[in-house]
């Protein structure tokens, strides 16, 4: 049975449908002991599919359930799902967060076109963020949004940048209170008190360790240069 390494934990995933296995194939490892086993029942898949806003398949629903279960297992261990397009450059990770449709993907496309040799996408939508002591590491995961941008790679998180649309381009560092007001919208809430407690403790450390910015931007090279220059010097 194949095992998968996600956020440096090893999972035994035994799905009902092949979709989850093909999704996770870049994360396969051999010769290791599993930390956790994860599976979904048919009833869970059916309930998830019935809740979906657009028609979906049981196989796709199963993949979502597996990821949520992974997140629930890891939340007490200092790992959280950050909803954000996350890029890596110079060995460091930078996450862009905004409500869907704001232009996270468009913005990191600009980074990719400006610096094609220097920038890779760790995860286009839903990476995991792991706390170890005072440091935070972003991990690529198979669950990554419709572009399929993900890499089985990791990097220390240097900054989080919230994005909003603006006519002109401007960026500023957020106070802890402002960051606190924005970060929770971008996190998956674990189920159960133990996971929520773990997440709150992780966020407490995150707000001290990682600077957060607000970028108001249009779609232009200038916007990408502004965020690149600011974030990589944070």
């Amino acid at each position: 049975m194949p095992l998968y390494r996600i956020a440096d934990f090893v999972f035994d995933i035994e799905p009902l449908y092949d979709y989850t296995l093909s999704l996770c194939k870049d994360y396969e490892v051999t010769g290791e002991a599993a930390d956790f086993s994860v599976c979904a029942t048919l009833a869970e898949c059916e309930a998830e599919a019935a809740r979906a806003l657009t028609p979906t398949t049981l196989a796709y629903s199963e993949a979502l359930i597996v990821y949520r279960k992974i997140c629930d297992l890891l939340a007490p261990r200092g790992v959280i799902l950050l909803h954000g397009a996350t890029v890596k450059t110079g060995g460091r990770a930078y996450a862009f967060c905004a409500p869907s449709g704001t232009g996270k993907t468009t913005h990191i496309r600009l980074w990719l076109s400006l610096f094609p040799d220097r920038v890779t996408v760790l995860n286009g939508d839903k990476p995991l963020l792991r706390r170890e002591g005072e440091s935070f590491t972003v991990y690529g995961t198979p669950w990554c949004g419709k572009e399929g941008w993900n890499k089985n790679d990791k990097a220390p998180l240097s900054a989080i940048c919230f994005l909003e649309r603006g006519e002109k381009n401007a960026i500023r560092r957020l106070s802890k209170e402002e960051a606190l007001g924005r970060i929770f919208e971008q996190l998956l809430k674990p189920s159960g008190a133990l996971g929520i407690d773990g997440l709150l403790s992780t966020v407490d450390g995150l707000l001290s360790a990682v600077p957060m910015f607000l970028l108001s931007c249009n779609i232009s090279e200038e916007a990408a240069r502004l965020s690149y220059d600011t974030l990589t010097h944070a």
């Binding site: 802890k176 209170e177 809430k189």
Partner: peptide, 24 residues
């Protein structure tokens, strides 16, 4: 509900099944 101090602020978080932090 859970009351925790985060970054010097006191947060009350509903433990309910919702996957978002709405209601915090």
């Amino acid at each position: 509900f859970m009351l925790r101090e985060v970054a010097g602020f006191f947060l009350v978080v509903p433990l309910g099944a919702k996957a978002s932090f709405q209601g915090m």
